[in-house]
């Protein structure tokens, strides 16, 4: 029994400090960065000529914010296209109102570039879609926690596909990284409309003892190492009880 306890302690003491040597990248926590913070109230220049601040635009209807740039040869076009298709399919506008703001994070983009982009997606006449630019893009992306990196070789920004939900009070209630399905998009729209959505912190490589792990390939939840920690006390207890009895019997015979 003593040996077992010693072995378990050694294993635990070896594994845990080793964790601090692992990468401390924020990994999947990026969706949590700046959540519930108020976004920077940037003055926006919208296609169609309107000048309005971000918070004013969100005041009547909460916003789905998509950060893109017009010369993007990567994920921007699929992001907007998929957003358009998913929103059309979900048809939530009656039940959960929202507007979509497609904002350029490229300081070189002009309002004409965004106008062209809106036309390309055939969204110029859609009443709930806004395309625009701002002079305060750095403050906006900082408040969102979005970090595009300019690649001089490719003449492109290296960046995430990002959608952010902005409530009528200008607070960011949810972020979606990557191209996501309609279910996730529905949750984002619900969150900006103050509908409760279950949320939880995603595991990272700094957290090894998770109870359950989601396998994206099979869509199944599989037990994790954390469950062992929950079961372990019962096992140790019974081993102790049996061990004591055996030791006592040995002593008396």
């Amino acid at each position: 029994m003593f040996r077992l306890c010693l072995f378990t302690s050694i294993v635990m003491l070896t594994i845990l400090p080793a964790q601090s040597l692992f990468s401390q990248s924020l990994g999947d926590f990026r969706e949590e960065i700046n959540i519930y913070n108020t976004l920077y109230d940037a003055p926006l220049h919208l296609v169609g000529g309107a000048d309005v601040s971000l918070h004013e635009l969100a005041k009547d209807k909460p916003i789905i914010l998509a950060l893109v740039f017009s010369r993007c040869s990567g994920v921007c076009n699929p992001l907007v296209l998929e957003l358009k298709e998913n929103l059309r399919m979900l048809n939530l506008q009656q039940e959960l109102p929202y507007s979509v703001l497609v904002l350029s994070f490229d300081p070189w983009d002009k309002i004409e570039d965004m106008q062209y982009m809106a036309e390309r997606f055939n969204l110029t006449n859609e009443p709930d879609w806004y395309f625009g630019v701002t002079d305060s893009i750095n403050q906006v992306i900082n408040s969102v926690g979005f970090k595009p990196i300019w690649d001089e070789k490719k003449k492109q920004f290296d960046h995430d596909a990002l959608l952010a939900g902005v409530s009528t009070k200008g607070k960011m209630t949810k972020k979606l990284l990557g191209l996501r399905n309609s279910k996730d998009l529905r949750m984002l729209v619900q969150s900006i409309n103050k509908v409760f959505i279950p949320s939880y912190r995603l595991p990272t490589n700094t957290s090894i003892f998770t109870c359950f792990n989601y396998d994206p390939e099979t869509g199944k939840i599989v037990p994790g190492t954390g469950l062992l920690i929950i079961i372990m006390p019962v096992l140790i207890t019974w081993l102790t009880v049996i061990g004591i009895r055996m030791a006592v019997r040995k002593k008396t015979t």
Binding site: L16, Q19, S20, Y200, T204, T210, C211, G224, G226
Partner: peptide, 12 residues
Amino acid sequence: YSNGGFINDALL
């Protein structure tokens, strides 16, 4: 004591 090097699973 891990200074961010070790994060626990909230569910666990």
